[in-house]
Every structure is written in C-alpha cells, then in structure tokens.
C-alpha cells in the first residue's frame, strides 16, 4: 500500500465532502415534500452523488479517504442522534475494504464499494428503529398528523432493511453512472 495521505489529499477530501454535503441536503429538501419520495431518499441520493464519489475515489486512490468522507457526511446527518454517525462509519469501512480489495483502482470494486457507502444515506431513518416514539413525535410537529400517519403506514420497522437495500441499489446505479461520466468527461478533461 501507498504511504499515508498528504495535506493536498486531505484538502481534496474536505472539498469533495463539501460538494457531497450540499448534494445531500438538497436531496433531503427536495424529497421531503411527500412521504413516498422521502422514503426513497437513500435510493435517489445514491444515484445523484455517484459521479462525485467516483471522481473522488479516482483522484485520491488511497487508504483512509473513504473513511474521512464517511465521517464528515455522518457528522452532518447525525443531527438528532449518534446512530447515523456510527452507521456512516460502518458503511465507510465496508466501502473502504471493498475498494481496497481492488486497490482503489478497479471500477468494479469501486462500484460495489459505493453501494455500501450509499447505504449510509439511510442514517436519518435509523431513529425509527431505536426511538420510534420520539421520531414520530418530532415529525408530527412539522409535517402534521396526516403526513405522519401516512408515513407510519408506509414505514413499519422492518422497512429499514428495505431502505438499506434501496440505498445499496441506488449506489450501484450511481456508481455505474459515475464510472461512465468519469470515462466520458473527467478523464478527457484531464482532471483525474
């Protein structure tokens, strides 16, 4: 393996995290309007952020980069509890290991790794598992009874697994798109 990250790469990590976070927040706001799309947030975010992730991993193909990104995204998502942060680190670790098996250069490994990474966009929903009452209570305050009743009927506890899988699939699609964009645009522009 190569040596540890240089300052330049740390700066790149921070900058990409900024783009990631902007995308994440934009997606959460857009999908939050109806319960159905809100449940698909992990899937859609996975697709949209795929190209950014792929560019990032190809620009800094080293150990530790994914974990930094995961930690920063996790920090942003864990506004109500620490579960999202832990979950993000877990997903980041899984992505790290998967991409590491391909030496961070194999497109296939990276796509699979992004699948794991993108599962972490489920983070905000984790409180359904651990603190259901409080979660719905705080939602009622903002969305009103009807929205929450609708949401609750759509989302029994077991749905978390489904959401994680949807995030994974979204990640795979986003990853494939990202690789395409990489080949088609970024390599040609000479920024990788």
């Amino acid at each position: 393996m190569k040596k540890k990250l240089s300052t330049k790469e740390l700066i790149l990590a921070g900058a990409f995290a900024a783009i990631f976070v902007v995308g994440l927040i934009a997606m959460a706001v857009i999908t939050g309007f109806t319960p159905v799309t809100f449940l698909m947030v992990a899937f859609l975010t996975g697709i949209v952020l795929g190209p950014i992730y792929m560019l990032y991993i190809n620009k800094v193909p080293k150990r530790g980069t994914i974990l930094i990104l995961a930690a920063l995204c996790g920090l942003v998502m864990s506004s109500t509890s620490f579960y999202p942060l832990l979950f993000s680190l877990l997903c980041g670790l899984a992505a790290e290991v998967t991409s590491g098996l391909g030496n961070f250069e194999s497109p296939k490994h990276n796509v699979l790794g992004y699948g794991f990474f993108s599962s972490m966009f489920v983070g905000p929903f984790l409180s359904i598992l651990f603190a259901k009452e409080a979660f719905f209570k705080s939602m009622t305050q903002y969305y009103g009874e009807a929205y929450v009743a609708n949401f609750a009927s759509l989302a029994p506890e077991g749905i978390i697994l489904g959401l994680i899988i949807s995030g994974f699939i979204g990640g795979i699609i986003g990853g494939v798109l990202g690789n395409k964009a990489l080949k088609h645009h970024f390599k040609r522009a000479g920024i990788v």
């Binding site: 990250l5 740390l10 700066i11 921070g14 900058a15 995290a17 900024a18 930094i68």
Partner: peptide, 22 residues
C-alpha cells in the same frame, strides 16, 4: 489530529464556493 482538522476546515470553506459555482 490534522487528518480531521484539514478536511473539516476545507469543507466549511468550500460550501459557499459550491453554491457560487452552481
């Protein structure tokens, strides 16, 4: 650790840049 400080500081600095570029 510097491994956390630099990415974090850059992230905060970079969000407005992303907005401008957009």
């Amino acid at each position: 650790p510097m491994g956390f400080i630099i990415p974090f500081a850059v992230m905060v600095r970079f969000v407005p840049t992303v907005k401008e570029e957009y």
